[in-house]
């Protein structure tokens, strides 16, 4: 029954949709902030996997969850890892 009325509504530009989108965005950030433990676990596992291939300074690794924009009003969360490489290990240069 309710959908019947929604049909006439201006769904896209309605202020409640703006509210919903803004909330989704801010909550991505809020939720990511409340669990540093979770990020530490991910960080540990990433280090484990890539340390066979690369040399890097563990203290310089920056891992965080941020929002990324895919379209005009299409956002999603992304895990961004910034790992400055000191040196490639031999096993990594397997192109030759």
């Amino acid at each position: 029954m309710f959908d019947f009325f929604r049909f006439f509504g201006k769904e896209e530009s309605s202020s409640k949709n703006i509210a919903k989108e803004r909330l989704k965005l801010v909550l991505i950030h809020d939720r990511a902030n409340v669990s540093p433990k979770f990020l530490d676990i991910i960080k540990g596992d990433i280090i484990k996997v890539i340390s066979d291939y690369l040399e890097f300074d563990v203290d310089e690794i920056d891992i965080r969850i941020t929002k990324v924009q895919n379209g005009e009003s299409d956002y999603s969360s992304a895990l961004v890892a910034n790992i400055p490489i000191k040196k490639m290990k031999k096993i990594g240069k397997n192109s030759g």
């Binding site: 009325f5 509504g9 309605s14 202020s15 409640k16 919903k20 909330l23 909550l27």
Partner: peptide, 16 residues
Amino acid sequence: MVKRGDMMNIEDTMDI
């Protein structure tokens, strides 16, 4: 307000 699309409805709030 929900009907005008100016307030989040039950579904929106639960979804979040």
